[in-house]
Each structure stands twice: as C-alpha cells, then as structure tokens.
Simulated assay, not measured.
Amino acid sequence: MNLSKCSNWFDVIDSFTKCLSSWKSKCLSIGGRLTLTKTVLGSLPLYYFSIFRAPIKVFNKLESIRSRFFWGIKDGVKGISWVKWNKVCANINVGGLGIGSIRVGLLGKWKWRFLNEPNALWCRVIKVLHGDNGGFGVSSKRVDPWHKSGCIMKDKFPRLYALELEILCLFKDRWIHTSGIWSCNWNWRSAPRGRTLDEVSTLMSLIRDMSLDPNAPDRWQWGLHNSRKFSVRALSALIQNSLNGPLSRGINFRWNN
C-alpha cells in the first residue's frame, strides 16, 4: 500500500470522524470536548504516524475534524471558530489549551535510533531495502562533539579542509596522543600560508586544551536540547512552536467565558 496517497489514509480519517462526531460534541461541555480531542490525538494515529509519513492534506483534514468537534459545529454546516485553531493547539504557557499539533515528529524517533543502532537487525534490514541512509534523507549532520560549539570542522576551516589529502579522515587522526603528549598530525598537500595561517591559529586555540578519550566511541548528539538527548516530546514542542509561533493572550482573554 502506498501511504503517500491521501486515499490510503481513509481508515485513520474515518476513525477520527467516528470518535469526534458532531452528536458527541452536543452532549459534552467545552471541557469534555477538549479532553476527548486530546485523547483521540494521543491514541488513534500514533501507530500510523510512527511508521509512515502522512501527506499534508491528511494532516489538514484531521485538524479540520478536531477543530469542528471542539467548537461543536454540525456536519455539513459552516460554523464559526471563535479563536484560530493554531492558538487553541498552542501550549498553555503561551495562551493556548495545550492540545498540540498532530505533526508530533514520531518518525524522528526512528531516525534517531537508526543513527545510534547501526548494527541492530532491523537497521540492517532497512539499509538493504532503502539504502545506507535508510530513506531518511541526509538532513542530519554529524558534528564534532569535542567542542561545546558543535562546529563542523570542514565548514569552520574551509581552507584547511581544501589542503587535506584525506577528506574523510577523523579528528582523532589529526589530534593524536603520543608519549603522554597531544600533538597535531597534519596531512596537507602543501604548507598553509597567507589567510590559511589564520585558520591554523584559530584551530589551535580551540584544541590546545582539549584531550580526547581514545576508548570512547563516536556518537550522535541531539543539538536542539541542552541534554543532547533526543526525545519525541522535545521534538514535538519544537514543531508546535514552529507551526504556531509566539502567541499573545491579549487583554482579559478567557477560554471559559
């Protein structure tokens, strides 16, 4: 089944429609409708969204169903939404009701595991079926974790990168530990000169006081959170903030009149 087609998401849309039907909305208070809206988001689509990438039209349709149910709008009737839906979905601390966006970023969990479990059986199967990148694309960047700036060496020092004979070398190949002393082991096609010397000076100022653990394996880090660890919750918050943007509560704004 090709789930890039909207028609193949009918089961999910139908489940939403049945659970968030207009007759139920008439029997519930706004608090009850809010609770049911959150519950449906937290249960029905999780299996599908954690495995498949849904088309944008499917997201829009599901959001429309949730919005109409929350505001108590009957099927086939053009009702009134008193507040923009992105404001309703926004976090409570910025004036929303914390419903959250359907785009919860569940596929990110699998991409993170794909990067950190390269020898797992499921990961090897995915590589056979979809190639070395697993079909996730190449949007992620592997950064050098030895410095708090998380800089990418070839981008920060392009002139030195151009001189390097082995462009796929690791940092540990150039910053080596011998007889208790850390030293450089450059492999340049020619000696740096001119403005390239400035890059050498900057690089040395970064690594002069650094020491690498030769027994520590390279690992991926999540650069969008202080803990450097990936979580679906943190990614969902980033997605919601990106979609909804900063909101203003306004003057004397109340959800329950």
Rank of each mutant, 00 (worst) to 15 (best):
C6D: 06
N8C: 00
N8F: 07
F16Q: 03
K18G: 04
W23T: 12
K26G: 08
I30E: 01
L34F: 07
L34M: 11
T39S: 15
L41V: 14
G42I: 03
G42L: 06
P45D: 10
L46N: 13
Y47Q: 13
I51S: 02
I51T: 05
I51M: 08
R53W: 00
A54C: 07
P55D: 06
S64E: 15
R66I: 07
F70Y: 06
I73R: 04
I73K: 07
S81P: 06
W82S: 01
C89I: 01
C89T: 05
C89Q: 08
L97R: 03
I99D: 02
I99E: 01
I99K: 01
L106F: 07
L107N: 02
W110Y: 05
K111H: 15
K111A: 14
N116R: 00
E117D: 15
L121R: 09
W122S: 10
R124L: 15
R124Y: 06
K127P: 08
K127M: 13
N133L: 14
F136T: 09
F136D: 03
F136Q: 03
F136G: 01
R142H: 08
D144E: 14
W146Q: 14
H147Q: 14
K148T: 12
S149N: 12
M153E: 06
M153T: 05
K154M: 15
P158C: 06
A162E: 14
F171H: 13
D173Y: 01
W175D: 00
I176E: 04
H177K: 09
T178Q: 07
G180W: 02
S183F: 05
S183D: 10
S183G: 10
W186R: 06
R189E: 05
S190V: 05
A191H: 09
G194V: 11
T196M: 11
E199H: 03
V200E: 04
M204Y: 10
L206Y: 05
D213L: 11
P217D: 08
W222N: 08
G223D: 02
N226W: 10
S227C: 00
R228W: 15
K229W: 02
F230C: 04
R233P: 08
L235A: 13
Q240P: 02
Q240R: 07
G245H: 13
R249H: 12
G250T: 11
I251W: 15
N252M: 01
F253N: 12
